[in-house]
Protein backbone atom coordinates (compact mmCIF):
# COMPACT_ATOMS: atom_id res chain seq x y z
CA UNK A 1 0.00 0.00 0.00
CA UNK A 2 2.82 2.23 -0.87
CA UNK A 3 2.26 5.16 -3.18
CA UNK A 4 5.61 6.08 -4.61
CA UNK A 5 6.69 9.48 -5.80
CA UNK A 6 8.74 10.37 -8.85
CA UNK A 7 12.43 11.04 -8.29
CA UNK A 8 13.77 14.43 -9.32
CA UNK A 9 17.14 16.10 -9.69
CA UNK A 10 18.01 19.17 -7.64
CA UNK A 11 19.64 22.32 -8.96
CA UNK A 12 23.03 21.15 -7.69
CA UNK A 13 22.67 17.79 -9.41
CA UNK A 14 21.69 15.43 -6.58
CA UNK A 15 18.92 12.90 -7.19
CA UNK A 16 16.10 12.88 -4.68
CA UNK A 17 14.47 9.47 -4.68
CA UNK A 18 11.39 7.77 -3.30
CA UNK A 19 9.97 8.10 0.22
CA UNK A 20 12.27 6.51 2.77
CA UNK A 21 10.54 7.40 6.01
CA UNK A 22 6.96 8.40 6.33
CA UNK A 23 5.17 9.68 9.42
CA UNK A 24 1.40 9.23 9.21
CA UNK A 25 -0.85 11.12 11.61
CA UNK A 26 1.52 10.90 14.55
CA UNK A 27 0.12 11.95 17.92
CA UNK A 28 2.30 11.78 21.01
CA UNK A 29 1.07 12.54 24.52
CA UNK A 30 2.83 12.68 27.87
CA UNK A 31 0.00 12.28 30.35
CA UNK A 32 -2.27 15.21 29.54
CA UNK A 33 0.31 17.13 27.53
CA UNK A 34 0.10 16.74 23.79
CA UNK A 35 3.64 17.01 22.45
CA UNK A 36 2.81 16.14 18.86
CA UNK A 37 -0.62 16.49 17.37
CA UNK A 38 -1.60 14.60 14.22
CA UNK A 39 1.50 15.29 12.16
CA UNK A 40 2.28 13.68 8.82
CA UNK A 41 5.30 14.19 6.61
CA UNK A 42 7.82 12.17 4.67
CA UNK A 43 11.57 12.04 4.23
CA UNK A 44 12.76 11.16 0.75
CA UNK A 45 15.88 9.28 -0.20
CA UNK A 46 18.93 11.47 -0.59
CA UNK A 47 17.41 14.69 0.65
CA UNK A 48 18.25 16.96 3.53
CA UNK A 49 15.04 17.44 5.42
CA UNK A 50 14.78 19.97 8.21
CA UNK A 51 12.30 20.16 11.04
CA UNK A 52 12.19 23.63 12.49
CA UNK A 53 10.11 25.44 15.04
CA UNK A 54 10.39 27.55 18.20
CA UNK A 55 11.47 25.98 21.50
CA UNK A 56 8.94 23.49 22.82
CA UNK A 57 7.33 22.96 19.43
CA UNK A 58 7.82 19.19 19.65
CA UNK A 59 10.75 18.87 17.25
CA UNK A 60 12.90 16.73 19.51
CA UNK A 61 9.90 14.58 20.38
CA UNK A 62 9.39 13.99 16.68
CA UNK A 63 13.02 12.94 16.25
CA UNK A 64 12.67 10.62 19.23
CA UNK A 65 9.64 9.03 17.60
CA UNK A 66 11.61 8.43 14.41
CA UNK A 67 14.53 6.91 16.33
CA UNK A 68 12.31 4.75 18.52
CA UNK A 69 12.98 6.44 21.86
CA UNK A 70 9.31 7.51 22.09
CA UNK A 71 6.31 5.57 20.90
CA UNK A 72 3.36 7.60 19.62
CA UNK A 73 -0.13 6.82 20.92
CA UNK A 74 -1.62 7.30 17.46
CA UNK A 75 -0.29 7.18 13.95
CA UNK A 76 2.07 5.02 11.98
CA UNK A 77 5.73 5.14 11.06
CA UNK A 78 6.56 3.75 7.63
CA UNK A 79 10.13 2.86 6.73
CA UNK A 80 11.15 1.75 3.24
CA UNK A 81 7.57 1.07 2.23
CA UNK A 82 6.71 -1.02 5.26
CA UNK A 83 4.83 -0.15 8.40
CA UNK A 84 7.29 -0.23 11.27
CA UNK A 85 6.15 -2.10 14.39
CA UNK A 86 6.90 -0.58 17.81
CA UNK A 87 10.66 -0.95 18.06
CA UNK A 88 13.31 -0.43 20.69
CA UNK A 89 15.84 2.31 19.90
CA UNK A 90 18.63 -0.20 19.38
CA UNK A 91 16.55 -2.09 16.84
CA UNK A 92 15.87 1.12 14.93
CA UNK A 93 19.61 1.80 14.98
CA UNK A 94 20.30 -1.68 13.62
CA UNK A 95 17.92 -0.95 10.75
CA UNK A 96 20.26 1.81 9.64
CA UNK A 97 18.97 4.91 11.38
CA UNK A 98 21.74 6.76 13.24
CA UNK A 99 21.32 9.87 15.34
CA UNK A 100 22.98 12.54 17.41
CA UNK A 101 21.57 14.21 20.50
CA UNK A 102 20.80 17.79 21.39
CA UNK A 103 22.80 17.56 24.62
CA UNK A 104 25.53 15.32 23.17
CA UNK A 105 25.47 11.72 24.32
CA UNK A 106 29.01 10.48 23.94
CA UNK A 107 30.94 7.94 25.97
CA UNK A 108 33.01 10.41 27.95
CA UNK A 109 35.42 7.92 29.45
CA UNK A 110 36.38 6.47 26.08
CA UNK A 111 38.76 7.83 23.44
CA UNK A 112 37.48 9.48 20.27
CA UNK A 113 38.53 6.41 18.31
CA UNK A 114 36.66 4.04 20.62
CA UNK A 115 33.58 6.26 20.51
CA UNK A 116 33.53 6.19 16.75
CA UNK A 117 34.20 2.43 16.79
CA UNK A 118 31.01 1.87 18.80
CA UNK A 119 29.21 3.21 15.76
CA UNK A 120 30.50 0.17 13.83
CA UNK A 121 28.84 -2.38 16.12
CA UNK A 122 26.08 -2.81 13.54
CA UNK A 123 28.65 -3.90 10.97
CA UNK A 124 30.49 -6.28 13.27
CA UNK A 125 28.98 -9.72 13.05
CA UNK A 126 31.32 -12.11 14.89
CA UNK A 127 29.90 -13.66 18.05
CA UNK A 128 31.02 -13.79 21.63
CA UNK A 129 33.11 -16.94 21.22
CA UNK A 130 35.19 -15.80 18.28
CA UNK A 131 35.66 -12.44 20.02
CA UNK A 132 37.00 -14.24 23.09
CA UNK A 133 39.38 -16.30 20.97
CA UNK A 134 40.22 -13.04 19.20
CA UNK A 135 42.75 -14.44 16.68
CA UNK A 136 41.15 -15.08 13.30
CA UNK A 137 37.73 -13.69 12.33
CA UNK A 138 37.40 -11.27 15.23
CA UNK A 139 40.78 -9.66 14.62
CA UNK A 140 40.18 -9.39 10.87
CA UNK A 141 36.83 -7.78 11.47
CA UNK A 142 38.36 -5.30 13.90
CA UNK A 143 41.01 -4.29 11.37
CA UNK A 144 38.46 -3.83 8.56
CA UNK A 145 36.21 -1.70 10.70
CA UNK A 146 39.15 0.27 12.03
CA UNK A 147 39.97 1.23 8.45
CA UNK A 148 36.43 2.42 7.81
CA UNK A 149 36.51 4.44 11.01
CA UNK A 150 39.85 6.05 10.14
CA UNK A 151 38.32 7.23 6.86
CA UNK A 152 35.49 8.92 8.70
CA UNK A 153 37.88 10.47 11.21
CA UNK A 154 39.84 11.79 8.25
CA UNK A 155 36.71 13.07 6.57
CA UNK A 156 35.62 15.04 9.64
CA UNK A 157 39.15 16.30 10.28
CA UNK A 158 39.51 14.99 13.81
CA UNK A 159 42.74 12.98 13.33
CA UNK A 160 44.59 15.13 15.84
CA UNK A 161 42.32 14.09 18.71
CA UNK A 162 41.90 10.41 17.87
CA UNK A 163 43.29 9.15 21.16
CA UNK A 164 41.92 11.89 23.42
CA UNK A 165 39.23 10.91 25.93
CA UNK A 166 36.05 12.58 24.74
CA UNK A 167 35.29 14.11 28.13
CA UNK A 168 38.24 16.49 27.70
CA UNK A 169 37.19 17.93 24.35
CA UNK A 170 35.58 21.32 23.83
CA UNK A 171 31.91 21.47 22.90
CA UNK A 172 32.27 22.01 19.17
CA UNK A 173 34.59 19.04 18.75
CA UNK A 174 32.30 16.82 20.83
CA UNK A 175 29.49 17.59 18.40
CA UNK A 176 31.77 16.58 15.55
CA UNK A 177 32.77 13.32 17.27
CA UNK A 178 29.11 12.53 17.78
CA UNK A 179 28.53 13.07 14.07
CA UNK A 180 31.51 10.79 13.33
CA UNK A 181 30.05 8.05 15.50
CA UNK A 182 26.70 8.30 13.74
CA UNK A 183 28.41 8.24 10.33
CA UNK A 184 30.49 5.22 11.26
CA UNK A 185 27.29 3.17 11.25
CA UNK A 186 26.96 3.98 7.51
CA UNK A 187 23.34 4.88 8.13
CA UNK A 188 20.66 5.13 5.47
CA UNK A 189 19.04 7.86 7.49
CA UNK A 190 20.95 10.25 9.70
CA UNK A 191 19.05 12.19 12.36
CA UNK A 192 20.70 15.31 13.75
CA UNK A 193 19.19 16.96 16.82
CA UNK A 194 20.23 20.62 16.77
CA UNK A 195 23.67 19.97 15.26
CA UNK A 196 24.55 23.64 15.48
CA UNK A 197 23.15 24.53 18.89
CA UNK A 198 25.55 26.52 21.03
CA UNK A 199 28.16 26.95 18.31
CA UNK A 200 29.88 30.11 17.21
CA UNK A 201 29.64 31.31 13.60
CA UNK A 202 32.82 29.57 12.48
CA UNK A 203 31.82 26.25 14.03
CA UNK A 204 28.37 26.57 12.47
CA UNK A 205 29.93 27.05 9.05
CA UNK A 206 32.15 24.01 9.57
CA UNK A 207 29.20 21.89 10.61
CA UNK A 208 27.07 23.05 7.68
CA UNK A 209 29.87 22.12 5.32
CA UNK A 210 30.19 18.67 6.87
CA UNK A 211 26.45 18.05 6.65
CA UNK A 212 26.41 18.99 2.97
CA UNK A 213 29.51 16.90 2.28
CA UNK A 214 28.06 13.86 4.03
CA UNK A 215 24.91 14.10 1.98
CA UNK A 216 26.84 14.67 -1.21
CA UNK A 217 29.63 12.10 -0.84
CA UNK A 218 27.88 9.24 0.94
CA UNK A 219 24.40 9.95 -0.38
CA UNK A 220 23.11 9.79 3.18
CA UNK A 221 19.57 10.97 3.76
CA UNK A 222 19.58 13.52 6.55
CA UNK A 223 16.82 14.80 8.80
CA UNK A 224 17.86 17.61 11.08
CA UNK A 225 16.27 19.77 13.72
CA UNK A 226 17.12 23.40 14.26
CA UNK A 227 15.50 26.45 15.69
CA UNK A 228 17.93 28.80 13.97
CA UNK A 229 16.08 29.40 10.69
CA UNK A 230 18.91 31.05 8.79
CA UNK A 231 21.26 28.04 8.73
CA UNK A 232 18.51 25.60 7.87
CA UNK A 233 17.19 27.47 4.88
CA UNK A 234 20.57 27.37 3.14
CA UNK A 235 21.08 23.72 3.96
CA UNK A 236 17.89 21.82 3.36
CA UNK A 237 15.85 20.68 0.39
CA UNK A 238 12.54 20.70 2.23
CA UNK A 239 11.43 22.00 5.61
CA UNK A 240 8.71 20.99 8.07
CA UNK A 241 7.71 23.75 10.45
CA UNK A 242 6.22 22.87 13.83
CA UNK A 243 4.63 25.03 16.48
CA UNK A 244 2.92 23.89 19.68
CA UNK A 245 2.98 20.28 18.49
CA UNK A 246 1.23 21.02 15.20
CA UNK A 247 2.61 21.20 11.70
CA UNK A 248 2.16 24.70 10.34
CA UNK A 249 4.21 24.50 7.19
CA UNK A 250 5.90 22.04 4.86
CA UNK A 251 7.76 22.70 1.63
CA UNK A 252 10.87 24.13 0.06
CA UNK A 253 12.72 26.80 2.05
CA UNK A 254 11.22 29.50 -0.17
CA UNK A 255 7.66 28.25 0.26
CA UNK A 256 8.09 28.04 3.99
CA UNK A 257 9.69 31.45 4.26
CA UNK A 258 6.65 33.05 2.64
CA UNK A 259 4.08 31.03 4.60
CA UNK A 260 2.07 33.49 6.77
CA UNK A 261 1.59 30.95 9.59
CA UNK A 262 5.34 30.41 9.78
CA UNK A 263 6.00 34.12 9.85
CA UNK A 264 3.49 34.45 12.69
CA UNK A 265 5.11 31.69 14.71
CA UNK A 266 8.58 33.15 14.33
CA UNK A 267 7.92 36.87 14.41
CA UNK A 268 4.71 37.09 16.41
CA UNK A 269 1.30 37.87 14.91
CA UNK A 270 1.40 41.01 12.86
CA UNK A 271 -1.60 41.34 10.54
CA UNK A 272 -2.46 44.82 9.51
Amino acid sequence: MKDSVEPYVTADGRTIGDRMMEMRNITLRFGGVVAIKDISFDIREGEIRAIIGPNGAGKSSMLNVISGFYHPQEGEVWFRGEKRPAMKPYQVAQQGVARTFQNIALFNGMSVLDNVMTGRLRQMKTGLWSQMIWKGPAEREEVENREAVEKIIDFLEIQAIRKTPVGRLPYGLKKRVELARALAAEPDLLLLDEPMAGMNVEEKEDMSRFILDVNDEFGTTIALIEHDMGVVMDLSDRVVVMDYGRKIGDGTPDEVRNNPDVIDAYLGVDHD
Partner: peptide, 15 residues
Protein backbone atom coordinates in the same frame (compact mmCIF):
# COMPACT_ATOMS: atom_id res chain seq x y z
CA UNK B 1 32.03 0.12 28.34
CA UNK B 2 29.63 2.12 26.20
CA UNK B 3 26.63 1.03 28.28
CA UNK B 4 28.53 1.79 31.48
CA UNK B 5 29.14 5.30 30.19
CA UNK B 6 25.80 6.38 28.72
CA UNK B 7 22.64 4.29 28.22
CA UNK B 8 20.98 6.63 25.71
CA UNK B 9 24.02 6.87 23.52
CA UNK B 10 24.51 3.12 23.69
CA UNK B 11 20.95 2.57 22.48
CA UNK B 12 21.46 5.02 19.65
CA UNK B 13 24.36 3.01 18.21
CA UNK B 14 22.32 -0.18 18.30
CA UNK B 15 23.45 -1.84 21.54
Amino acid sequence: RAVADDHQAALSVGI
